[in-house]
Design a protein around this nucleic acid. Structure first.
Length: 435
RNA sequence: GCGAUCGUGGCGAAGUUGGUUAACGCACCGGAUUGUGGUUCCGGCAUUUCGCGGGUUCGAGCCCCGUCGGUCGCCCCA
């Protein structure tokens, strides 16, 4: 019978790899705590219309969604990204009524996209994301980018670049959009089929096209920055200035438009420039959205956020030779000196664990040599050796691996001896008496 | 969705003019040494099995077809 494999584009995470995830998750919590962001957990599937909005031209929404019918008639979709569901929750729970706006959230969890898998591109991938909703200020845009950059710095990533651009407000965007339409119309038939579709749905995205990248119509295309109204120019200038004053290097890229259609004003993408990275180099990306909250039936609140791919971050760390995995050695290994003492050793292990020591034991009375190998592999600091002779006298032997020191103590002194060897903060009775 | 390439034990990997007992290394297990290891030595470790399913052949891990999965590029994006 053929073995069953995990579905394409999914993976099992365990062992040493798991410790990396824990390290990243811990860092997410610590960092978001410091910046004042609260965790939010939204459903991993939503009603399809949460993600599929009218006139959306993005592939994520149109080609890559896992959509299914839930028994009856409701069409549900496994979330392909984090923002839409969060905004739905923001409106549904009336979080906009908070006296303290903006609301600042972070989330971490799986996203699902039906794509051709590649390194750094999975059908189930995990995103750490943040969103700030309910207040609009260039300082918030700067803070969001700063948090992401800070995160990468704390992880130790170095070969990164911050790309930033603005799409301007609605007025600017419409003006630019019209200019683009006028510009591309004459040469439309020479552009790729995707671009012909984009022309209708979202002409901005033609600028991003790799197929037509060299086409004269693209190279001569009007620049967004020539169509921004004063307010949009000021807004973007402030974002860039604040980032600059915070020593965050940015590169303005006037062709950066991003994949989701709901963006306005600031958009950004942080990419790895490491040569080992392959073609999936974006570690996190996001932008501001002015109309999403209203779309979901809330007030005209603006928001901004990013999504960061954990798997992709892991690839980037690997590319830079950064190992964030941690060894988790045990404190105590309980050895059996003979099969007769198996059940007694179980009780000793219980005692050690009750005292808070990370403890393993030999379950089957294997050869001593083998048990000692386990001791080494697991990095145990103390071995409890359970033998019949000592047991008869109500004692047990303990060996300190580091010093090779071995003592035999009464059973009720076992934990005391462990404290003596293992607990750095432990104060011996002798010391106390000496005070 | 398009193109290319790969898929041998827990891991790393040999293995083409198709002909057997499928190398070797690491890891693991046992013994020398059933009460004290990390060295050494000895032995065991894919017991129709080479991702899976068909086909060609007297005979296939090596050839053909299909399928599943990985990887790379395109595309897309986290």
């Amino acid at each position: 019978m053929a073995t069953i494999q995990a579905p394409r584009g999914t993976q099992d995470v365990f062992g040493k790899e798991m410790t990396k995830w824990h390290a990243l998750e811990d860092l997410v919590r610590d960092l978001c705590f410091v910046y004042g962001y609260d965790e939010i957990r939204t459903p991993q599937f939503e009603h399809t219309e949460v993600f599929k909005r009218e006139n959306d031209s993005s592939d994520v929404v149109n080609k890559e969604m896992y959509t299914f019918i839930d028994r009856g008639e409701r069409s549900l979709t496994l979330r392909p990204e984090g923002t839409a569901g969060l905004i739905r929750a923001y409106v549904e729970n009336k979080l906009y009524t908070s006296v303290d706006l903006p609301r600042k959230f972070y989330y971490i969890g799986p996203c699902f996209r039906y794509e051709r898998p590649q390194k750094g591109r999975m059908r189930i991938h995990h995103q750490f994301g943040i969103e700030v909703v309910g207040e609009k200020s260039p300082l918030i845009d700067a803070e969001v980018i700063q948090l992401g950059v800070d995160f990468l710095a704390r992880v130790g990533l170095k070969d990164t670049k911050v790309l930033i651009n603005t799409l301007g407000d609605k007025e600017s965007r419409i003006a630019y959009r019209d200019a683009l339409k006028t510009h591309f119309e004459p040469s439309l038939s020479e552009l790729c089929p995707d671009c012909q579709r984009r022309f209708i749905q979202n002409p901005l995205r033609i600028l991003d096209c790799k197929v037509d990248a060299g086409h004269p119509a693209l190279t001569s295309a009007p620049n967004i920055h020539d169509y921004l109204n004063e307010e949009s120019v000021d807004y973007f200038a402030t974002v860039c200035r604040v980032l600059g004053d915070s020593n965050i290097e940015i590169e303005v890229s006037d062709r950066l438009v991003r994949g989701l259609d709901y963006y306005s004003h600031t958009v950004f993408e942080v990419v790895s420039v490491n040569k080992e990275m392959g073609s999936q180099a974006t570690i996190f990306g996001g932008g501001r959205y002015d109309e999403l909250v209203e779309y979901f039936g809330g007030p005209a609140h603006s928001g901004i956020g990013f999504g960061m791919g954990i798997e992709r971050l892991l690839v980037a760390l690997d590319a830079e030779g950064i190992d964030i995995s941690v060894d988790e050695p045990i404190d105590v290994y309980v050895m059996n000196l003979g099969k007769e003492v198996l059940e007694s050793s179980f009780q000793f292990a219980s005692m050690c664990r009750a005292a808070g020591y990370r403890t393993e034991l030999d379950y089957t009375g294997r050869a001593f040599k083998t048990q000692f190998k386990s001791v080494d592999r697991k990095g145990a600091k103390v071995v409890v050796m359970v033998g019949e002779n000592e047991l008869k006298e109500g004692k047990v032997a303990l060996k300190n691996i580091a010093t090779q020191e071995q003592v035999t103590v009464k059973i009720d002194e076992l934990v005391h001896q462990l404290d003596h060897w293992l607990d750095e903060n432990h104060v011996c009775e002798a010391d106390q008496q000496g005070e």
